[in-house]
Computed example of a mutant assay.
Amino acid sequence: MGTVVLTMKASVIEMFLVLLVTGIHSNKETTKKIKRLKFNVPQINCDVKAGKIINPEFIVKCPAGCQDPKYHVYGTDVYASYSSVCGAAVHSGVLDNSGGKILVRKVAGQSGYKGSYSNGVQSLSLPRWRESFIVSESKPQKGVTYPSALTYSSSKSPAAKAGKCSRLVNRQYCVLGDSVEINIFTGQAPLIW
């Protein structure tokens, strides 16, 4: 009788340990699954310029076809924020013309941007610009939270809306493209819009 009770106690203890270990194991898998959940990566078009996005660092998905010359890129390795984000990614070699995810980080403006031909994209030179960005592979850095939605600036000057050169200081300022007013001699935006 004593042997039967001991055997039953041993069996109960073994079952308890099996359940405990199984619970811990499934708990670890649940934790792993939670950590592996992916955040929503915003998709942008080829014509989106880095300067229109307010976020200082973000991951985006670019579509195919951003190698087209109509998506202007200014600079090499470090790009003026007036550049197409996805065009710069193709120029830098981080993406090919089939698109994909990239990490974008805003950096300080440069005193000059040198144009070059790389990966089927001709980038242009620019004397200086107030903000720059760099692109890299979309590997998130530990401890950094990336936005699942981007914040865009919506301000446009009246001259930019008209789409023609303004007549400030002897035609010194001109609208470049669809929204940026620059000094044609220095390449800088005016301080007052």
Rank of each mutant, 00 (worst) to 15 (best):
G2F: 00
T3F: 04
V4M: 15
V5L: 13
L6K: 03
L6C: 00
A10C: 01
V12F: 06
E14C: 11
M15N: 11
F16S: 03
F16V: 01
V18I: 09
L19E: 09
V21M: 01
T22S: 14
S26H: 10
S26F: 13
E29S: 09
T31I: 03
I34A: 00
R36W: 07
L37A: 09
N40E: 12
I44M: 00
N45L: 10
A50R: 01
G51F: 02
K52E: 13
K52F: 13
I54F: 10
N55A: 14
N55F: 14
E57T: 12
E57G: 11
E57L: 13
A64R: 09
G65T: 04
C66I: 07
C66S: 07
D68W: 08
P69D: 04
Y71W: 07
V73W: 02
G75D: 05
T76F: 06
D77M: 11
S81C: 07
Y82S: 00
S83A: 11
V85G: 01
A89W: 11
S92Q: 02
L95Q: 03
D96F: 04
N97V: 03
N97W: 10
N97D: 11
I102G: 10
I102A: 06
L103Q: 15
L103P: 15
V104Q: 03
V107I: 15
G109E: 12
Y113L: 07
K114Q: 15
K114L: 10
S118H: 14
S118K: 09
G120A: 12
G120L: 13
Q122R: 07
L126G: 00
L126R: 04
P127D: 06
R128M: 06
R128D: 12
R130T: 10
R130H: 14
F133L: 12
V135D: 01
E137Y: 08
K139M: 09
K139C: 09
P140W: 03
Q141C: 03
G143P: 09
G143V: 12
T151I: 10
Y152L: 02
A160R: 00
K161P: 07
K161V: 10
G163T: 11
C165A: 10
C165L: 11
C165E: 15
L168W: 15
V169R: 07
N170P: 07
V175P: 00
L176F: 05
D178V: 01
D178P: 01
I182A: 04
N183Q: 15
I184P: 12
I184Q: 14
G187R: 11
P190G: 00
L191A: 08
L191H: 10
I192Q: 13
I192W: 13
I192C: 12
W193N: 14
